[in-house]
Nucleic acid binder design. Structure first.
Length: 421
DNA sequence: TCTGGGGTCCTTCATCGA
DNA sequence: TCTGTCGATGAAGGACCC
């Protein structure tokens, strides 16, 4: 088998027999897309992130990372670490469009593509081997296509399971390809720190460290009962399977959405219920629009409230019938906010609205309101979706969301007001 | 240092009906 | 009629991932 390029991390045999899963991950995706449009920034520190006081880093070039900048880091700190970096506000629409084109490159290789986010995906290439050759060669083919068509680089992990393929791509970044052969999996896996395991974050990592477990090999040989006692049955079984190289999840081309939602952090903490309710209206609108555009309705509405001290509470309500209407979602969100005991009592830094328990919209009964013809709000909102789809999300807004100086008026009462301008 | 936004999954506890 | 049990479901919170 020929390996044309850049196995940055190896030491393994490179034998890709039986390694039919690829994990493809774009390198510093948002920043790379920005540099493609501004080539003068190539090989310089670039940070993509919001400009407001509470923004975090969304993406950073490797030049910026060499100064300690990491994604999810507060922007203020990133700017202190790397004051000469170019900071670019994110253009999500552009990244979405590039992502679509990259996924199309993947789908030209195999129909079994499972996107994980805008910038990474699992591919099952077992059906493409006869036509395109061994998996590592397919990985190189994909890397070339992405570089030629999109002028950005990606890294590819090749292995027999999703977890190992993902680890492989992490270990060959940036701009690399790594095969973890079937018979080299444990040799690769066991020296890694426990944080390499999918599902071990800060808290679980601390718990495992208290048990004296430091490496993946330690987890593999730990008694299951001890793990279960400290991290729970499901997590213990999950981690021990991964540590033994077992991962029987297949690549799924169609993953069903389970929830949609929207949340927003205020620039400054807010205690005024009028402002909070106005934000709930905005978020309810966004959530309802996501529901309708994905062809779903929701049964359960969840409101998330984060206080100034960062403690977070959620309150939820399951409705008798599924809905995708802004009015009903907003009314429920307001009721949950009122019942939380935080209304007017606490300073909030974030509010969120989420819809779970999704059902296909076609399965939801048409909502009839006494005294109105069937589907009144639904028809009106569908019409608005068409307008906002064409002219942008702010083309038509509820009166309550039209900014007025110095302070906007309260949104109309739940269930009755907050309608369209 | 001071923590975004969009998600998934798991655990625990309460409630309800059989 | 009362009590205990069990499973399903809902609610809340936490941890994690990208």
């Amino acid at each position: 088998m020929s390996r044309q390029a850049s196995s940055r991390v190896t030491g393994l045999s490179g034998d890709d027999a039986g390694c039919h899963i690829l994990h493809v991950d774009m390198d510093a995706f948002y920043a790379s897309v920005e540099i493609r449009d501004r080539p003068e920034l190539a090989r310089t520190p670039v940070i993509v992130g919001g400009l407001s006081g509470r923004s975090v880093v969304l993406s950073a070039t490797y030049e910026a990372r060499s100064f300690g900048v990491r994604s999810a880091m507060p922007m203020a700190r990133a700017r202190r670490l790397c004051p000469h970096a170019t900071v670019i506000p994110p253009r999500h629409g552009l990244y979405g469009a590039v992502s679509k084109e990259v996924m199309a490159i993947f789908r030209a290789v195999t129909p079994i593509v499972e996107p994980l986010s805008l910038d990474e995906a699992f591919l099952d290439v077992s059906g493409a081997i006869r036509l395109l050759g061994p998996p590592a060669g397919i990985g190189e083919h994909i890397r070339r296509q992405v570089a030629q068509q999109q002028q950005i680089t990606c890294s590819v992990g090749v292995a027999a399971t999703k977890f190992l393929a993902k680890l492989a791509s992490v270990h060959c970044k940036p701009d690399g390809l790594l095969v973890i052969p079937v018979d080299g999996a444990l040799q690769f896996l066991h020296p890694l720190p426990i944080s390499a395991l999918w599902g071990v974050g800060e808290k679980t990592g601390q718990t495992l460290a208290r048990l004296g477990l430091r490496t993946v090999g330690d987890i593999a040989s730990a008694p299951l009962a001890a793990l279960e006692r400290d991290i729970g049955k499901a997590a213990a079984a999950h981690l021990q399977a991964l540590a033994a190289g077992r991962d029987d999840r297949g690549v799924e081309a169609a993953v069903r959405e389970k929830s949609v939602g929207s949340e927003e952090t205020f620039d400054v903490d807010v205690s005024d219920p009028v402002v909070v309710r106005r934000e709930l209206l905005r978020l309810s609108r966004r959530t309802a629009r996501s529901l309708r555009s994905s062809g779903h309705a929701t049964r359960t509405i969840v409101v998330k409230l984060r206080k100034a001290d960062f403690t977070t509470i959620t309150r939820s309500k399951t409705l008798p019938e599924p809905t995708s209407e802004t009015q009903q979602i907003y009314a429920t969100a307001c009721a949950l906010y009122a019942a939380s005991g935080l209304s007017g009592q606490a300073r909030l830094r974030l509010v969120g609205v989420r819809a779970t328990g999704l059902v296909p919209a076609a399965a939801a009964p048409a909502q009839l309101v006494l005294g109105e013809g069937g589907g009144s709000w639904h028809d009106a909102e569908s019409a608005l979706d068409k307008i906002t789809g064409r002219f942008g999300p702010d083309a038509v807004r509820p009166a309550a969301l039209v900014e007025r100086a110095p302070r906007a008026a309260a949104p109309g009462p739940p269930g009755g007001g907050g309608s369209t301008a």
